[in-house]
């Protein structure tokens, strides 16, 4: 029988939490091995970055939803970290198989990769819970149901991340994890929003990359970006 919107939202949350029940909020043994195999071990940077981004996330969560909800923000972040580690491990396994390498030093020492991956994981968590709080109006830490205010592209601002870099992880993230149809649809919506609008905003990294591409062909006239 078809589920009510509330039941569907609850099921979605249970699925996410169930999928992560055996995931830790620290790197697994397998993931730690990938870190150790790097020319430069990224472990300490990864942990420090998570602490910094965690504080930023919880603070902004509290500012958006209400100061009583900072603890709730920390819970969301912890769930996001579990998903981040889980997807990272799956991505690395897939890359190892594809490229026949075990040293991913450049990728794992790239702060943008980690921030993008964490942002995507948190977007999944926020979208999952956001649906629930929207549809169960009245249950909150004391205020209007506002977790939908934290839907994409809110996370980009919190992490000072460009849409262009966030875009890079979306497809691999979907491939790496068994996300629900609704969440895949949500990430697809984020992807389309980036491609259609956000990536073309003034100051976007995309224009610099286009300029670099065109510098290879001096005779070609480059259009100035539209404001």
């Amino acid at each position: 029988p078809p589920q009510t919107p509330v039941r569907a939202a609850m099921t979605s949350i249970q699925q996410l939490r169930g999928d992560l029940i055996s995931s830790g909020d620290q790197p697994s043994t397998n993931l730690a091995t990938y870190f150790k195999n790097c020319t430069v071990d990224p472990t300490q940077d990864v942990l420090k970055r998570l602490e910094t981004l965690g504080q930023a996330f919880s603070q902004r969560f509290g500012q958006t939803v209400g100061p009583n909800c900072v603890v709730l923000g920390k819970q969301r972040f912890t769930l996001g970290v579990k998903l981040y580690y889980k997807v990272m491990e799956a991505m690395l396994k897939s890359e190892e198989k594809r490229l026949s390498v075990q040293n991913f030093s450049k990728l794992l020492n790239d702060p943008t990769f980690h921030t993008s991956l964490l942002a995507c994981a948190l977007e999944v968590v926020m979208a999952t819970y956001g649906e629930s709080s929207f549809k169960t109006a009245g249950y909150n830490c004391g205020g209007e149901p506002s977790e939908t205010d934290m839907r994409f592209p809110w996370i980009l601002d919190v992490f000072n991340l460009t849409a262009f870099n966030f875009y890079k992880v979306i497809e691999s993230f979907i491939k790496a994890d068994s996300l629900s149809k609704d969440i895949i649809k949500h990430l697809e919506t984020c992807e389309n929003l980036i491609m259609e609008r956000i990536a073309w905003r003034t100051g976007s990294l995309l224009f610099e990359l286009l300029r670099q591409e065109h510098e290879g062909g001096a005779a070609e006239q480059v259009e100035t970006p539209a404001s």
Binding site: L99, L107, V169, K181
Partner: peptide
Amino acid sequence: SHDYHFGLEDHEGISELFDCD
């Protein structure tokens, strides 16, 4: 099932997207 379109080719992955190839 979903209808997300996977655009990456077999020789493309996260390593290439972050210039790590």
